[in-house]
């Protein structure tokens, strides 16, 4: 599978997504050139028409599974990939399009399309790992370029990547951010959201909105109770807080469902 000069081959795949994660690789110009020196980018349609036939040493998969065709295609991708890494909230949790999982697909379809009967779509938007075994999930909407470079470096070196699954709070403390929730009363999902972004939003005095999905041991029910009691955040607002880019990640899904039930 290695190319003629011994570089491992890499394929970048797109499923239902906005392409933002692929773009965060493309827009990382310095790193991209260094990556291209170390691996043979064999399939990356967003970057080049040149396609080298598989199988591939490493596949990076962006996007969620939303159609019967894609449910087939991801199995093929798995078959021809030694290592498969999913990148971004769509691929790891179903993405923003998983909001449909909470609604009625047929109703949406008739509203949006002139001839809904020709649109072949699955009822739910689901993560890649619900369809095929995944070696590593890289979170984020979009992913952080630094984390992607770290993961590719780790794959090349045959070592474990450093991609901690603890909360965003750790990153705030490491970089010296003052807690926006405690010191400013800003609702923040940081305590229940996985690290990886470098605590970008709190560094700009914004609350975390959970784009890296739930932590390794999330407790959103406790956070919600506090936000309701201390900050006056009501149930509809709590529902919306959890129901964004990682709406269908299990911990966020069950929490937003809970507020659906109690919402007036």
């Amino acid at each position: 599978m290695h190319d003629g000069i011994g570089r491992p081959t890499v394929a970048v795949w797109k499923f239902a997504s906005c392409d933002g994660c692929q773009l965060s690789l493309l827009s990382a110009e310095d790193e991209l050139l260094r990556i291209a020196e170390e691996v043979h980018i064999a399939y990356f349609l967003e970057a080049t028409r040149e396609v080298v036939e598989g199988p591939y040493d490493l596949s990076l998969v962006e996007g969620s599974i939303t159609t019967p065709d894609d449910a087939e295609r991801i199995r093929h991708v798995r078959d021809i990939s030694t290592t498969l890494i999913t990148i971004g909230a769509c691929a790891t949790a179903g993405g923003i399009q998983a909001l449909r999982n909470f609604g009625d697909l047929d109703a949406f379809r008739s509203l949006v399309y002139a001839r809904p009967e020709v649109v072949a779509s699955l009822a739910d938007s689901t993560a890649i790992a619900e369809h095929v075994p995944v070696d590593l999930e890289l979170r984020g909407c979009p992913i952080e370029t630094d984390q992607l470079v770290e993961v590719i470096s780790a794959v090349l070196a045959g070592r474990k990547p450093v991609t901690p699954t603890h909360s965003v709070c750790v990153e705030c403390k490491l970089r010296g951010n003052v807690c926006v929730a405690v010191a400013d009363g800003t609702p923040c999902l940081g305590p229940v959201t996985q690290a990886g972004c470098g605590a970008r939003c709190p560094a700009f005095a914004r609350g975390c909105y959970g784009c890296f999905g739930p932590t390794e041991s999330p407790n959103p029910a406790s956070l919600s109770a506090w936000l309701e009691e201390q900050f006056g955040v009501d149930h509809p607002e709590l529902l919306r807080l959890y129901r964004t880019f990682n709406a269908d990640a299990p911990a966020f899904r069950s929490e937003s469902r809970r507020h659906e039930e109690v919402a007036p």
Binding site: E31, R34, I35, E37, E38, V149, E150, I152, S153, A154, L156, A157, R159, V162, H166, S167, C169, V170, K173, C179, G190, P191, V192, T215, S217, P218, N219, S222, L223
Partner: peptide, 28 residues
């Protein structure tokens, strides 16, 4: 109630735990 978010330990002036992170560059 606990969020296991680690804030208490990181602001604690005596908590001393650390971990080791081993990384390599792209070129190895």
């Amino acid at each position: 109630r606990c969020l296991a978010c680690t804030n208490c330990t990181l602001v604690c002036p005596t908590c001393f735990c650390s971990t080791i992170e081993d990384t390599t560059d792209l070129r190895g």
